[in-house]
Amino acid sequence: MMKAADEVMDICLLAGEIMLTYGAETYRVEETLERMARAAGFTNVHCFATTTGIFLSFEEKKGKEDLMQMVRVDDRMQDLNKVTEVNQVSREFTAGELTVEEADARLKKIHKAPIHYPIWLIHLAAGVAGSGFSYLFGGGLQDLLPAYIAAVMASVTLVEFERYLKVRFAAELAAAFVGGSVAIFLVFIGLGLSLDQIIIGSLMPLVPGVPLTNAVRDLLSGDLLAGMSRGVEALLTSLSIASGIALSISFFL
């Protein structure tokens, strides 16, 4: 049954690709893929994943050549809902509740699904998060509104720049620049008092929380390569945010 092995390889790699793209830890990808391949009845299962690619190899039966494939993962986004759903599919597949075809259909559906929350809700949520953190970092109640506006503007800039330019670090830099400029403008016209807190709040939604946490987890579980590269990714994001805000401060203050 050569076909079955090929199909199992496909669903495993699809599951891994979705998880890695949308922000799962490397160890989780490796563990999930190995479990799924073992549950399908293959032996000698090995999986190696880094932040940008997955290798998977297994043996269909003794004496036959091993199958080995890889996928390259270019995009890294944050959609933890997809990670959770793939996790659920792999759990059911491992428990034998799903056939290969059913798992394939569900994974393809997850892969094609749009982002879990509508984009306008994400902008509004960015505003709530930004204004909340501007208060927690020491701003007053009168700073909530300007921080909200600045954070929403930063979030809109991030999404729109990424849509048209498709360069992530440029989009982050632009978002930080817009967030900072709007905050400075709002304080200039008298809306809000503590400029520093408003700027910090408006930038908080850009913080690379997912890669940072995953970097720690990956380094600890021995995936040194993946951990380092995720850490550097988070660092790059932080640097582009810092340069964006530094740019707006040097321009307008």
């Binding site: 922000g23 944050q78 959609d79 933890l80 809902n81 997809k82 959770t84 759903e85 982002i115 879990h116 929350y117 809700l121 994400i122 949520a125 960015a126 505003g127 709530v128 998060a129 930004g130 204004s131 909340g132 953190f133 208060y135 927690l136 979030s155 939604p205 929380g209 997912v210």
Partner: peptide, 23 residues
């Protein structure tokens, strides 16, 4: 007040990271 604001801000962040609804 800080605790209430933290709660709202964290839920905002949850939406940004697309945390599933039950979490």
């Amino acid at each position: 007040i800080e605790l209430i604001i933290t709660f709202c801000a964290i839920i905002g962040f949850g939406v940004i990271f697309s945390v599933p609804k039950r979490a």
